[in-house]
Design a protein around this nucleic acid. Sequence first.
DNA 1: ATACGTTTTAAACATACGTTTGAAAAATCA
DNA 2: TGATTTTTCAAACGTATGTTTAAAACGTAT
Lengths: 227, 227
Amino acid sequence: MAQSDTVDRILDAAEELFADRGFAETSLRMITSRAKVNLAAVNYHFGSKKSLIQAVFARFLTPFSATAEAAFDDLEKSCNGKAPTLNQTLRALTESAVRMHQRSERGIAIFMRLLGLAYTQSQGHLRKFLEQEYSEPFSRFMGLLKEATPELSTVDRYWRIQFMLGATAFTMSSNEALRDILVNKMGVETSVQEIAARLVPFLAAGMQAKDPMLAPMPCDHESLAVL
Amino acid sequence: MAQSDTVDRILDAAEELFADRGFAETSLRMITSRAKVNLAAVNYHFGSKKSLIQAVFARFLTPFSATAEAAFDDLEKSCNGKAPTLNQTLRALTESAVRMHQRSERGIAIFMRLLGLAYTQSQGHLRKFLEQEYSEPFSRFMGLLKEATPELSTVDRYWRIQFMLGATAFTMSSNEALRDILVNKMGVETSVQEIAARLVPFLAAGMQAKDPMLAPMPCDHESLAVL
DNA sequence: ATACGTTTTAAACATACGTTTGAAAAATCA
DNA sequence: TGATTTTTCAAACGTATGTTTAAAACGTAT
């Protein structure tokens, strides 16, 4: 083997196992045995399990945030002066994610799953790491969302962004669990690109829903939500 | 003390700790020390940690599913013959959840957080347990959703339900992580009821979004999403 | 009071974890 | 080549986990 691909093999194995089972449920012995490297290799190359987790994120998050920022640049340039649409902003982000992992279909799924785990599992160190390492592209995305939804109050927008992130991360992070309980054999296999294509309109519509707190709920009134 | 409140004390402590830290990250020693009972009490009363996890879910899921089914009965009765609206169905569910835990504000938050963890954390036994124990009210809810969105194809509805569950579970299951990274001090404290009130219109609008796969994306076209 | 089933307790169990060690092996460079 | 650094390896370390044990304490009915 060329030089030391041990590091990459560890990252590959850790990435898949973390995505499948979570951080605490994945032991270093699982990782090293799947990667076919010695147990001590993790601590030698990464220092600790925590650092390995951060390295797994850094490996795909750094190029992704670069790609996303470039996509944001293009978007702002193409809509000269005017603020990009909500749909455009969302598409720019999802297409950046898809473009990143054009090689493997599984890559983008793992990508989303890990992002979901990052928030769900209580790994304080990971949160701090992501916060101080990728706060800039994140803030940029938030700014675009703000310009695309000027009609929303700050609080409404805050919560709806939470909802968007939730729908996205959770959908991608759900292993076969939901699939099984939802339908026993529906027989339809969907690619991640298709899921993204279905997700974006859902998110955009939810983001632009009429203000809450307005409609009372007498029976057989159709909801006030548009259409 | 009356009889043996040891069981309840264990359940209380486990519920909170699981909600705060997840299943794998919560040890029996944490639970028993918070509950102020002996370590062996868990295995004596529940048999194993897995059974304890299931018992925590059963304690709130059993009465909740009964309440929800009653709410569905009322809803179908009040809209005589006609299928309940999507908004009505969602409200019936969320209000059942809120009504369950009217005593403590924290109760409903823990409730949602645990549900989120149930899907997020890969506890195979939990999935099987929930599946075979609460499949009936779940299927009933699915049927109502189907009647409320007849315009959707089965596949579209399937994915949009995933999105809804995702937004809900993820929002409720996110500890302070998202809160912190999203806004550094926004100063607004929101109750779970308010979150639910904001969430329902978002979900309903997303669920009823115009069909995807229609709009191409040339620049400065406004999205085809309604409004 | 005594006997009996239930519950609690302290201690130990076996196992798995992340991490460290020190020597062997490989790679790098003089 | 020989010297030196980097990487691998098997083994062990200390700690924490879930679980089990056997005796003690308790409650209750005879």
